[in-house]
């Protein structure tokens, strides 16, 4: 079974981003970029499926700037077999990304497609579900457990208030949640080996997908700042303040 994993290059999760002075976006100049943490979990899961003998090939795909090759090389170092970059410098909306991924799915015909549940830059949480709609496949979002069984995949999902398990016909789309697995680190020999693995670069045009969108970002602002309050000296003072000053208990 072939597994396709979509990965996104995003600002590293440890970076505290700042809004640009002209309110056109956030300042990403000289900021550390990494693979989106949820995508990393997707790559890890695919590699584990390969180690278990369920997956035969793991293909990673990224849609983004030329520099996203770094994240694809990381995925190759972790154990993916082959990478595809759909090179595009524009900021794309999730629907466009899903259409580009659909074109890649049509070419690659994977049985399982893994994506992160959301990217930590735009926080949209849309692409996997949209790809599922465009391909007509079933979707298992926010997965904390993935078990392939014959022509089905059982996905346990993190839902409000607990867990839900669904059985999906393959091919299917799975989006990852935090507890699915703990991604490994790439070893130095594997990082060296990854440099020789195939990485193909294509364009949105070659896939016949327009990158136009119906959504425009008018401005980006810093959130209203919350000022620090006071320090209380003990529990008694805290309870007194909550009762008489804040009046919340």
């Amino acid at each position: 079974m072939k597994v396709l994993v979509a990965v996104k290059r995003v600002v590293d999760y440890n970076v505290k981003v700042r809004v640009k002075a002209d309110n056109t976006g956030v300042d990403l100049a000289n900021v550390k970029m990494s693979m989106n943490p949820f995508c990393e979990i997707g790559v890890e899961e695919a590699i584990r499926l390969k180690e278990k003998g369920i997956a035969t090939e793991v293909v990673v795909v990224s849609i983004g700037p030329n520099a996203a090759q770094e994240q694809l090389r990381t995925a190759l170092a972790l154990g993916a077999d082959r990478a595809i970059l759909v090179e595009c410098n524009d900021e794309l909306r999730s629907l466009t990304v899903a259409k580009l991924l659909k074109a890649v799915v049509d070419q690659e015909q994977p049985q399982l497609i893994m994506l992160g549940k959301q990217a930590i830059d735009t926080d949209n949480n849309q692409t996997g579900q949209m790809l599922a709609a465009l391909t007509g496949y079933a979707q298992g979002t926010f997965a904390s457990k993935v078990e392939v069984a014959g022509d089905k995949v059982n996905v346990t999902r993190e839902i409000d208030g607990g867990l839900q398990t669904v059985a999906l016909n393959l091919p299917a789309i799975v989006t990852t949640d935090l507890r699915l697995n703990e991604p490994r680190y790439a070893s130095l020999p594997n990082i060296m080996k990854a440099k020789k693995k195939p990485l193909e670069i294509i364009t949105p045009d070659s896939l016949g997908v327009s990158t136009a969108s119906t959504v425009t970002t008018l401005k980006v602002e810093a959130p209203a700042a919350r000022s620090a309050g006071i320090k209380v000296k003990d529990v008694a003072e805290l309870v007194e303040k909550l009762k008489n000053e804040a009046k919340v208990i």
Partner: peptide, 9 residues
């Protein structure tokens, strides 16, 4: 966006 570190209109 960005975990609430920015608000987009």
């Amino acid at each position: 966006i960005y975990a609430g570190n920015a608000i987009a209109t």
